[in-house]
């Protein structure tokens, strides 16, 4: 029987690093997916994923068990992703301001390399173009299969607001897909 996340947290806090390894295995793809669009390419996203788990480990004692571990990790990931994006924006602005040529932003591996079906590619590409809050809500709800309460917990808003963000995000996604096609 699979050990639940909270038990793994307790074991980690008791000094069992293998328990934290198990937690990372469970949620590394979630964390990576949430930060990939904030990071500078695939390698940057993987580095950021490592950074997030390291910070999560250091903050583990502060996990109060009120929400799920999954939502807690997702929240840390999003905050770190946003910080990373802000930092990258500052760096880009600095270079732009002084006319220094910088390599263009490297996107994560294009979905058309790995997704089957033109429609999936269109939708996934359009998803990347949405504003972060809309994109994250959709990513969490449909790709990571979180329930509305968990999405709300990650986005740190009420369930009603989460639904609203999700609904508006879907409408914008629909418009993006329509424009692309």
């Amino acid at each position: 029987m699979q050990v639940d996340d909270e038990e793994l947290v307790r074991a980690t806090l008791a000094g069992e690093l293998s328990a934290f390894d198990e937690l990372m295995q469970r949620y590394e793809r979630l964390v990576y997916s949430l930060v990939v669009s904030f990071a500078d390419g695939h390698d940057g996203a993987l580095d950021l994923t490592q950074e997030i788990f390291f910070k999560a480990y250091r903050k583990l004692a502060a996990f109060d068990g009120r929400g799920t571990v999954k939502a807690w990790l997702a929240r840390i990931a999003i905050h770190e992703g946003i910080n990373q994006a802000k930092s990258a924006t500052r760096r880009q602005a600095r270079h732009d301001a002084w006319h220094v040529v910088r390599p263009t932003h490297t996107l994560a591996p294009q979905d058309d390399e790995i997704l089957s079906g033109e429609r999936k590619r269109q939708v996934a590409t359009a998803l990347e173009r949405l504003a972060p809050r809309h994109r994250l809500a959709i990513e969490l709800r449909y790709l990571q299969e979180m329930g509305i309460p968990e999405v709300a917990s990650v986005l740190e808003c009420s369930e009603g607001v989460a639904r609203n963000i999700l609904f508006r995000g879907l409408r914008k996604l629909r418009r993006q897909v329509a424009q692309a096609s």
Partner: peptide
């Protein structure tokens, strides 16, 4: 679109 999203395997992008 919701249906398409539900059929995207997020692990394929990782």
């Amino acid at each position: 679109i919701v249906d398409t999203l539900s059929r995207i395997d997020p692990s394929l992008r990782t």
